[in-house]
Write a protein that binds this DNA or RNA. Structure first.
Lengths: 239, 239
DNA sequence: CAGTGGTCTAGACCACAGC
DNA sequence: CTGTGGTCTAGACCACTGA
């Protein structure tokens, strides 16, 4: 991330458009003005706008369609680090029926631990959720999530019976930056019970914190049985 | 990775230059011809080569210096997935003295298991290495590595007392593509002994396979005590 | 089939690092 | 200072595709 000054034309226009998308001013599906129009608006040549849009497309913020224009894409919370992390898709690609169940749901004031997890400073209200994702009957992953109600107040009343909290959030909060932490831990008694594994079993834990322009959105901790899940990534020199 | 046809000018020039770097024809430190010269050689405008070099710079293959030119960079085997994975650096950033020791070293014909690990088809000769990396006195990571001697014959006689096998390989093999697999496993007896942890302790295992244009180079399996190591990655929408 | 993005050009100016 | 990369322009042609 480069926050430094020295905004070239690219960068100014890029930040501007990125801002409109990220803030939700241009919602997913919104058609971005045509290159020619943008060029006129910003008073630059089309190639400059093209560079910006191409970059935004590479970053996954916009989708470009010939003949019809460029559109804001649905947010895709996933870095190259975790190319696969749509749990529903993961499960379905295994040929298993995907199910989830919210086991616990609680609204409360943020504790000190919550504040560390969520990167909040004041003691806002938070929503705590515990969700189990299953592939067929077998537990696939446990999701412990904290949602910052100061940023996403609607979460307090949301219905998570048809849509998982993660999915719901993606549709609610426009765009976010994220941080991932991956580690291996031994399952404690509670987790082992939920995942139906031996206590002490090695589990892969992926923690994700996300921020919207408004502030910290959510902290999610996914725990996978180590022997049932791997993270794969490939890369080539010039990508 | 896009291997499809339809080579635009960009892509053809990009692949060409990438090929020279990756094959070692242009070794690390080599000064790439100036943009104007490249433009003349390829019979294109300077902006086109600029685009290519900019892209190669973003990919980390070349470093651009104003006034002096563009240079081939030392290979940096790391995807965005594993932004940090120079063990020496990791340890030193902890403020600990870094040490390593090759515990086992053996040249042999590839077994069936080796062939799966290394992606070789014939039963070439391979070099098997077991290395322990330490932060001060405490074990930091166990590295089990297989090197394909058909691609890197010099490895058979290499001296791994001053330079770790991983470091040595980076300096030998020009550029590679790589695949990373991350998972959590319980330490078996042998690993537990080497890492000085309880048997069954959750460990983070990172496997990396790399290929050079010549063929599969190496397979390395790094095992970290789960409570002493995490993988972190951040990302923002437009990067 | 008209308009969009995709690409490329020839030329220009600038900042800046090394000579 | 001079030459390099960094950037930008005004204009052009093309392929594709959706109306």
């Amino acid at each position: 991330m480069k926050t430094g000054k020295d905004p070239t034309l690219h960068q100014r226009i890029l930040r501007d458009i990125e801002g409109r998308i990220v803030s939700g001013e241009w919602a997913p599906g919104h058609r971005i003005p045509f290159e020619i129009d943008l060029a006129a608006q910003y008073g630059v040549s089309r190639m400059t706008v093209n560079k910006v849009l191409t970059q935004l497309a590479k970053a996954g913020l916009v989708e470009r369609r010939k003949r019809s224009g460029s559109f804001v894409r649905q947010p895709q919370i996933q870095s190259a680090v975790l190319e696969i992390h749509d749990i529903r898709k993961e499960v379905e690609q295994l040929g298993q029926p995907y199910r989830f169940a919210v086991e616990r749901r609680q609204v409360r004031k943020a504790t000190g631990a919550d504040m560390r997890r969520l990167d909040v400073t004041r003691d806002d209200r938070v929503l705590e959720l515990l969700t189990i994702h299953r592939a067929g009957a077998t537990p696939f992953c446990v999701e412990a999530r904290l949602i910052n109600l100061a940023v996403v107040p609607a979460a307090a009343e949301a219905d998570f019976s048809a849509m998982s909290p993660g999915q719901w959030l993606i549709e609610q909060v426009p765009w976010t930056s994220a941080e991932h932490v991956v580690q291996a831990v031994s399952a404690d008694a509670a987790t082992a019970g939920l995942l139906d594994v031996e206590r002490g079993c090695a589990c892969l834990v992926i923690e994700r914190r996300t921020w919207s322009p408004t502030g910290p959105v959510t902290h999610a901790r996914f725990t996978y049985p180590g022997d049932r899940h791997t993270l794969v990534a490939r890369f080539t020199p010039s990508s």
